[in-house]
């Protein structure tokens, strides 16, 4: 019994360390590959804990290997957009200004009932209360509410922000999709103190042309540009 106690303590300590090293995201908001790794880790941890004939090292090496794979996939996801899309996919727009995107719903195997259920959980009753609904890569729904203002019959369009620069790299896919010009942003970033793109930590733009810009180790700035690209959002 003491053996099981000691082995369980060792496995717990290693698992705890590994989960901490994997980051907080691992606990609540998992990407598909993180979910797979968590399932495997749970199973691997149990074998050397309960089976005294298995060397504890076998379990530890397997857990460490999963940690290595997790780190490699995370680095791949961050460093290359293509690998990132391959590993974690991309958020899907289920409801946009034209209404429910049935094609996307079918593609995601989500029924209308499920969508309505999630809408109600988020505190909305009708689809027309929503400007955008997105299914995030971690499987959670995000809803952006329409914001009607006084004196206006038609509610104004809620801006949907899109990330265009992350860790000094352009998000080519988003730029191309919306017809956004790199030269325009490079000029804008220079005017706001970033000597090169590498200095830009994050930049997003919404459908009203509002740019959220943050230089490395600096406070963020919000710039109203009015620029919305060549294609409709």
């Amino acid at each position: 019994m003491l053996l099981i106690f000691i082995r369980t303590t060792i496995i717990f300590a290693i698992l705890f360390l590994i989960i901490r090293l994997m980051g907080k995201r691992q606990i609540g908001e998992m990407q598909p590959f993180e979910f797979v790794i968590t399932l495997l880790i749970a199973e691997l941890a149990c074998i050397p804990m309960a089976d005294l004939s298995t060397p504890i090292g076998f379990g530890i090496i397997a857990i460490l290997t999963l940690f290595v794979l997790h780190q490699v996939l995370t680095i791949g996801e961050k460093s290359c957009v293509f690998i990132g899309r391959l590993i974690s996919s991309k958020p899907s727009i289920i409801i946009d200004s034209n209404g429910i995107n049935y094609k996307e719903l079918k593609h995601l195997n989500i029924s209308l009932n499920e969508l309505q259920e999630n809408l109600r959980i988020a505190g909305y009753c009708n689809f027309d209360e929503i400007e955008y609904a997105l299914l995030e890569t971690n499987g959670k729904f995000s809803f952006l509410k329409k914001q009607p203002s006084e004196g206006e019959k038609k509610p104004p369009k809620t801006p949907l922000p899109v990330c265009i620069v992350e860790e000094g790299k352009y998000k080519e896919w988003e730029l191309n999709k919306l017809g956004l010009d790199k030269d325009y942003f490079e000029k804008l970033f220079k005017e706001n103190g970033a000597k090169s793109l590498k200095e830009v930590e994050v930049a997003t733009i919404d459908s009203n042309g509002k740019v959220y810009f943050q230089k490395k180790n600096s406070k963020y700035k919000v710039i109203e540009t009015g620029y919305t690209g060549r294609r409709p959002w």
Partner: peptide, 13 residues
């Protein structure tokens, strides 16, 4: 930091 830890663990294995 995570890259160093990753390389360390990989080397250890």
């Amino acid at each position: 930091r995570s890259t160093i830890i990753l390389l360390g663990v990989l080397a250890l294995i």
